[in-house]
Write a protein that binds this DNA or RNA. Structure first.
Lengths: 295, 295
DNA sequence: TTAATAGTGTCTATGAGACATTATTCT
DNA sequence: AGAATAATGTCTCATAGACACTATTAA
C-alpha cells in the first residue's frame, strides 16, 4: 500500500468500499415495564409483575412464534436512532430510558443470512400504554417474565473452576405460555475467566431471543442494585411500597420494609399527597429526588 | 407477504438476502495491562501503571496517528472469534480475558464508509509480553493511560438535572504524547435519564477511539469494585501490595492497606513463597482462591 | 372490630475508614 | 543504624438485617 503518497482528502474522494460481503445489522428491543395484576380482595394491594413486549412473527422463519421487536439498521441512521425508531413504531413512545445491552454476532443465529444484532433495553413506566398495531401482519403483546434456577453444578479442579447453571425462562401473556432452557457457564482456567451463555431449548421463542432476554434480565438485576435505574419503571408519583415491590420482582428476593425505606430516604422526596386508599392506612406519594448527591 | 403459504424449509431455500446496502462491521480491541516503571532507589517498589496497546496507522485516513487494533469481521466468524483473532495477530496471546464492551454505530464515525464497530476489552497479565510486528506497515506500542477531570458542571431545574463533565485523556509511550478532551453528559428529564459521550478534540488519536478508550476505562473502574476482574491483570503469584496498586491505579484513589487486606482475605490464598526482597521486609506471595464463595 | 397496609424504633452484626504499632530486610 | 515496605490491632462510624411495635383506613 502506498497511501503515504496521496493526501487524506484525495484518498477519501477515491475510496471504494469494495465488494466484500457484509453481514446485515439489526437492532433488537427489550421493552420492560411493570404491570399490575388486580386483586380479588379489596384490601389487598395489586401485585405488580415484570412485563416484556414481544411480537408474533408473521413470516418465516419461526412463523407464529414470538420474537423481540426489532429491525434493520439503515445506512443513514445510528444504532441508537434505529433503536428509538423501532421503539416508536412499536409503542408510540419517544422519551424513554434506553440502554445498549450487547451485540449478538454468532454465525448461525439467523437461518436466513448472517445477521449481527445489537440489543437495547428500554424501560417504560407502568402508566397506561397502548400497543400500536404493527405494520405488517404482526401482533404485539406483553408477557409476564419469570426465571427459575433448575440446576447448579460447581466443579473446582487444580487449574480452575467451573460453575454451570441451568435456568428456565418463562413467559406468559394469559393465552400463551412460552419457555426456554438456558445454560450459563462461568469458568476460571488458570488466570483466565470466561462466561458463556447457551440456549438449550426454546418453545415458542424465535431465534436466540430467549438468550437475549436472559442476558437483559441479568443486566437489570445487577444494575438495580447500584443505580437508580428502577425509577424509569415508576410513574411520576409512587408509594415506597410500590417501589419496593419493583425491587423485589427484579432482584428476585423479599426485602425488609424498614431497611428499604432507610436506603431510599435520600433518593426520594415526599410530594405531600397520599393514595386514595382502600381498606387500610393511606400511603404517602413520593417522587425522585433530583438533588440527591450520589448514586 | 404470503409467507404462510410455503414451508420454512422452502422459504429458507429460496431466501434472497437482497441488495440492500449494508454497513461494514469491525471489532476494536482494548488491550490493557499493568506495566512496571523501574525505580532509581533500590529500596523503592516499582510503580505500576496502566498500559493500553495502540497501533500506528500506516494508511489513510488518520495516517500516522494511533488507533485501537482491530479489523473487519468476516462472514464466517462470530464477533468474539474476530476479536480473538485480532488479539492473536497483535499480541500472539490466545487464552486471555475478553469482554464485549459496547458497539459504536454513529453514521459519520469513519470517514471512508459506514462502519459499525464492536469493541472488546482484553486484560493481560503483567508478565513479559512481546508485541508482534503488525502485518502491514503498522507499528504497535504500549501507552500509559491517564485521565483527569477538567471541569464539572451541575444544573438542577424543575423538570430534571444535567451533569456535564470534561475530562482529558492522556496517553504516552515515552516518545509520543497523545491527548483528547471528552465531554460526558448525564441527564434526567422528567423520569427519563440518559447519558451521552462526546469527543471534543483529539490529538494523535484516530477516529472516535479516544471516546472508546474513555468508555473502557469507566467500565474497568466500575467493574473492579464489584468483580474479581483485576486478577486478570495479575501474574499467577503476586503480593497484596502489588494487587492493591492495581486497584489504586484503576479506581484512581489511594486505599488503606489494612482495609484492603481485610477485603481481599477471602479472595486469595498464601502460596508459602516470599518475594526475593530488596532493602525491606519480604512480602508473601498469594494466588487467587478458587474456592471463594461469592464475588 | 378487623384485615390489611403504612411507617418507625432499636438492637445487633458486619464492614470500612483511620491511624497507630510492630516486624523484617538490605545496604 | 536507617530507609523502606509488610503486616496486624483496634477504635469508630455507617449501614443492613431482624424484628417488634404503633398508626390508619374502609368495610
Amino acid at each position: 500500500m502506498s497511501h503515504e503518497r496521496i493526501s487524506e482528502e484525495e484518498f477519501l474522494r477515491t475510496y471504494d468500499a469494495g465488494e466484500y460481503e457484509r453481514p446485515s445489522v439489526t437492532v433488537d428491543m427489550l421493552v420492560f415495564t411493570i404491570r399490575s395484576e388486580e386483586q380479588e380482595n379489596y384490601r389487598k394491594l395489586a401485585e405488580p409483575e415484570l412485563g416484556l413486549l414481544l411480537i408474533r412473527r408473521g413470516g418465516h422463519p419461526y412463523l407464529g412464534q414470538w420474537a423481540l421487536p426489532g429491525g434493520f439498521v439503515s445506512m443513514q441512521e445510528s444504532l441508537e436512532a434505529a433503536a428509538r425508531r423501532e421503539l416508536h413504531t412499536e409503542t408510540g413512545l419517544d422519551d424513554i430510558y434506553l440502554e445498549q445491552l450487547y451485540t449478538w454476532g454468532d454465525v448461525g443465529r439467523d437461518p436466513r443470512t448472517r445477521v449481527i444484532s445489537c440489543s437495547y433495553m428500554a424501560l417504560v413506566d407502568s402508566s397506561e400504554l397502548e400497543l400500536e398495531a404493527g405494520d405488517d401482519a404482526s401482533e404485539a403483546s406483553w408477557f409476564r417474565v419469570e426465571q427459575r434456577l433448575i440446576e447448579e453444578k460447581r466443579h473446582i479442579h487444580e487449574q480452575g473452576r467451573v460453575t454451570e447453571r441451568r435456568l428456565q425462562l418463562m413467559l406468559s401473556n394469559g393465552t400463551e405460555q412460552l419457555s426456554a432452557i438456558i445454560e450459563t457457564k462461568e469458568q476460571v482456567q488458570g488466570r483466565v475467566r470466561s462466561n458463556t451463555l447457551n440456549l438449550l431449548q426454546a418453545q415458542g421463542i424465535a431465534f436466540d431471543h430467549a438468550q437475549i432476554i436472559h442476558y437483559a434480565l441479568e443486566r437489570l438485576r445487577s444494575k438495580i442494585e447500584y443505580t437508580d435505574i428502577a425509577f424509569n419503571l415508576m410513574p411520576e408519583k409512587f408509594t415506597l411500597t410500590a417501589l419496593q415491590k419493583v425491587y423485589e420482582i427484579i432482584s428476585g428476593r423479599k426485602l425488609l420494609a424498614a431497611a428499604f425505606r432507610r436506603k431510599m430516604a435520600d433518593w426520594v422526596i415526599e410530594t405531600g399527597e397520599y393514595t386514595a386508599s382502600a381498606g387500610h392506612r393511606p400511603s404517602r406519594l413520593y417522587r425522585l429526588n433530583l438533588e440527591r448527591e450520589t448514586l
